[in-house]
Design a binder for these strands. Structure first.
Lengths: 338, 338
DNA sequence: CTGAAAGCGCTTACAG
DNA sequence: CTGAAAGCGCTTACAG
């Protein structure tokens, strides 16, 4: 036989119609058990596989989800944020478990999104993942909403937006970080990260941190804050600028682990001991966190659960079931840096 | 308009036939420039996207590659080997650059591969990636070959196999590790990793290591070898067993960074200083390597180039162009552990 | 339980 | 340069 076998080939060998082959392969109850078995055997022998393009075209669905990873354009091209890499892993697993394929695509935040996966029927729905400037993404989110695209978004839960999100309780995580410092009598706190509406996740972490301090009668001095995106380099430079400006503090909350790792490097270089002089707490619990020196205390986001929830929620949305945005509890992991 | 627009809708509004719409959208030179423009405008206005299932079905190709990541079944379910995660990133980028989508799938080594991506026309070709027991995979590779599936394989170049591979020069990398030890007068060497034909990559690294030592009149004592798969835990336990058996050495070559990291932990626990008492060299240069304490000397595999080559070679294979397996040069990165 | 037939939305040879 | 038509390989309502 030349080329791939089709259902007509199977039909020929099985001595039934092509319709019956199709039914048999889909295990339709309408098919005689014996016929079903015969068809399956022949299909196996001919190494037949249902043509997905044909069946998708016919059924108007794809059993595929698309993952759009949009990255901060300023980050190093060759390095993907390890937190997202972990998410990617868990999303892939979750998809497999649900019988869906996963299309992965990196989007640079600046370029036009190739978000036509759903329109072009390549995917039944889209998962959006990425740090970056949220305000830049607004119009794109709006387009997705207008087009009634099925999508679920990681992390950027903002006010009244009707889109579906799964995110970590960033506010609660920030509070945990502050509570940890207070429990260790470190009340002269600094914060590093972009605490603005450009980065709603970082902003929530900051708010929780500040509020918890306030509830303990500690005020976070605005001068002890520095802006950073989620890279080690950015954390390093932000911390250096604090040190250069002679800002003193004995506790530092970084909006992400990468920032924290950069911060620790800057502190060490300046002869400031971690945790003796400055206690450091990060956010994410990326794999590297436990290996740095000293091991990084951090607020863990459970990527396994997060990936599952993203997939589950998206599938519910696709199936027209009721869904709500999900808030995942963060967990403080105490290590040597604090 | 209800539902998605089709090329017939565009044709209706543009006052041309559907054939012309199809040609115009594909920028066929057969179409009048003015017509082409009009069709494109209307398509944009209606938010029209070519239905991939239909066009793939018609053209019998998918502009999609599949990445099968097969993992060692013994590794922790929640953690993916960071080296493969990095590869995944670079493969995704390389695909995007070539205008291909990437389907990602994790395969447990034990289960049946869902390697029907090509047969089912979901992908034009397959990239295989993973450590694990090579001998277990043999029959599966053979099936792929028999079915004339277009695939390219990372790392497991074995003898006379006709399949296309891209891999690091593991043998040369092993030699570099040995040369490094010899240059630092550390000639009492140990090796940790599965040096058998179950793990051809590890075996090549081991061979190169042993041969380079031999060329410098150093013999690697078989007792100073321990088996390990590519996880930290495995490296830890293998090293502990050497120590427990009172095996002495002043240099340790681990077949992967994860093994090396586990080894360092075991050494430290036993009160053995790295690098003072034992110099350690790993393989891969995963992101964590530079953060561990002490920073890990390792043989880097360039994942960016590797991902590009995998995609390039596979596309050549798909297009019927001439291709050869590719060997990538490794690079020793000297850090604090040696 | 089975078959003949329509149709999913494209692409492209064929005819003009 | 354009259009009518065939056909990619399925799924499923319809008729028996």
């Amino acid at each position: 036989m030349k080329g791939k076998a089709t259902s007509f080939d199977i039909a020929h060998y099985a001595g039934v119609s092509q319709s019956t082959v199709s039914r048999a392969l889909r295990n339709s109850p309408l098919v005689n058990e014996e016929t079903r078995k015969r068809v399956h055997d022949i299909a196996k022998k001919l190494n037949y596989k249902v043509d997905k393009n044909a069946s998708n075209l016919r059924t108007q669905q794809s059993s595929t989800l698309a993952l759009l990873l949009f990255e901060d354009p300023t980050s190093d091209d060759s390095q993907i944020n390890p937190f997202f890499l972990a998410m990617l892993g868990s999303i892939t697993r979750a998809c497999a478990k649900e019988g869906y394929d996963l299309l992965v695509s990196f989007q640079s935040a600046s370029a036009d999104w190739q978000a036509d996966y759903e329109d072009s029927h390549r995917a039944d729905g889209i998962i959006l993942l990425g740090y970056g400037d949220y305000i830049d993404f607004q119009p794109k989110f709006n387009t997705l909403l207008e087009q009634n695209t099925k999508f679920v978004c990681w992390g950027a839960k903002v006010d009244n937006r009707p889109d579906l999100t799964v995110c970590c309780d960033n506010y609660g995580g920030g509070k945990q970080a502050a509570a940890h410092f207070i429990a260790h009598s470190r009340t002269d706190c600094a914060f590093i990260g972009d605490a603005s509406d450009h980065s709603p996740e970082f902003f929530s972490r900051f708010q929780g941190f500040k509020d918890e301090l306030l509830e303990n009668n500690v005020t976070l001095n605005e001068r002890k804050m520095a802006n950073a995106i989620s890279t080690e380099e950015s954390g390093y430079h932000a911390t250096r600028s604090l040190i250069a400006n002679n800002i003193k503090f004995n506790a530092l909350f970084a909006a992400s682990d990468l920032i924290a790792i950069g911060a620790i490097r800057a502190l060490k270089e300046a002869g400031i001991s971690v945790p003796k002089d400055v206690a450091v707490v990060g956010f994410d619990n990326i794999a590297i966190a436990s290996y740095v020196n000293p091991p990084l205390t951090t607020i863990e986001q459970n990527t396994t659960v997060a990936g599952q929830m993203l997939v589950e929620n998206l599938l519910k949305l696709i199936r027209g079931q009721e869904v709500q945005s999900t808030l995942l509890p963060p967990l403080l992991i105490a290590r040597g840096s604090s």
